[in-house]
Design a protein around this nucleic acid. Sequence first.
DNA 1: TTGTATATTGAAATTAATTTTCAGAATTTA
DNA 2: TAAATTCTGAAAATTAATTTCAATATACAA
Lengths: 143, 143
Amino acid sequence: MEHLIEKFRQFIKQKGLKYTPEREEILREILSLEDHFDVESLYLQLKKKNSKISKASIYRTLPLLVEGGYIQEVYKQGGHSHYEVTLNKQPHLHFICIQCGEVKEALDHRLNNLIEEFERQSKYRFLTYHLEIFGLCPNCREV
Amino acid sequence: MEHLIEKFRQFIKQKGLKYTPEREEILREILSLEDHFDVESLYLQLKKKNSKISKASIYRTLPLLVEGGYIQEVYKQGGHSHYEVTLNKQPHLHFICIQCGEVKEALDHRLNNLIEEFERQSKYRFLTYHLEIFGLCPNCREV
DNA sequence: TTGTATATTGAAATTAATTTTCAGAATTTA
DNA sequence: TAAATTCTGAAAATTAATTTCAATATACAA
Ligand SMILES: [Mn+2]
Ligand SMILES: [Mn+2]
Ligand SMILES: [Zn+2]
Ligand SMILES: [Zn+2]
């Protein structure tokens, strides 16, 4: 945990930016989250801990965390972006219920193998992928 | 082509909605497009042909066309949605260059097979999927 | 046809996520 | 310290998408 914070500090400095308590606080909070999150939930979570961090700072920090490889934007829902911590996590797919909004993750190595093979067969450089499957969850399908 | 229009008319009526020239005009224009499109490009395209259709009507018609299976929202870029005609098209992946924004399609039956297998192994009902691969296109990777 | 109920239209107003502006505060380096 | 630069929160601005509204068009039965 602390070494991730330290690496973030180095990342920020190396970009010629200033290392601020706000940036560190946002990273710490995100690393403590288990689930997907969005700006609103992160903001409320911080507020609950009496943090005075503004949404503007959150909006300004998230792209840095994406660039540093800490988080990824994984899907849009309800008109806004949702993120997740990507450290120690393999690329995976998201199933999204179009009825109730439930989001479920699944990991399958065959998918990752296939995508790696796509890359080898192409002239592109693959950095990341999003696979979103839309449909009905077990609850919603029985209507 | 005309039978698609007719099927759309039936679809609209069967929903208890009214069949209007605006709705038909939007569908005709979309069916004539070869590429992905967004609201702005569709609006300008219609305007070029002296159509007086408003953006509001486009925004109102696109969800009907999605519901009817004519189009799909395929990705967000530049903060807004992009669509494509899905008739006579198999599900496919999109490669998006994070540098220049180029979007390229690819079709691979192994991917579709794999996703069908995911569905069989799950308790979910899969309706559609989006696979977006982000990276660098051949031009942009050589820097 | 004609009349009536209902849905649709374009334009303008509204909403909501995200970005930008700005002046004061904090960080960095010397 | 002191100076240079970046960052902050709050408010304003931007922009995709949605909603409102009054006028118009559609559908369908008489
Ligand atoms: Mn996930
Ligand atoms: Mn496509
Ligand atoms: Zn559900
Ligand atoms: Zn490119």
